[in-house]
Amino acid sequence: MSNDVLNWAKKVTVGGQTRKAVFLILADHADDKGRAWPAQETIADTLEMSVRTVRSAIAELCEAGLLTRKKRWRPDGTRATDILKFDMDLVNRQELPVKPEQPANERRITGKSRQTHRQMAPEQPAGAAGNPSLEEPSEGNHHKQNSSEATASGRPAGGRPAC
Rank of each mutant, 00 (worst) to 15 (best):
H117Q: 11
N141A: 05
S133Y: 11
H142T: 13
G34F: 01
D28P: 02
A9D: 08
P137K: 12
Q145P: 02
T42Q: 13
A44N: 06
S50V: 01
L84Y: 15
G140D: 05
R19T: 09
D87L: 03
R19I: 02
S113C: 05
L84D: 02
K144V: 00
R74E: 10
A59I: 12
L47F: 04
H117L: 11
G130L: 04
L84I: 09
R155I: 05
E63W: 11
K99Q: 09
L67Y: 05
G140N: 06
S56K: 14
K99E: 08
M49L: 08
K20Q: 14
S148M: 06
T42H: 12
G140T: 03
W37S: 15
C62E: 15
A30C: 03
D87G: 04
S2M: 04
G15T: 05
G140Y: 00
G34N: 02
R155P: 01
R108Y: 09
E60F: 07
D87E: 12
R155V: 03
R19D: 08
K11Q: 14
D76N: 10
D76H: 02
E60P: 04
R72K: 13
M88H: 07
E63A: 14
G158K: 01
M1E: 10
E106P: 02
M49R: 13
T110H: 03
Q17T: 14
I109G: 07
D31Y: 06
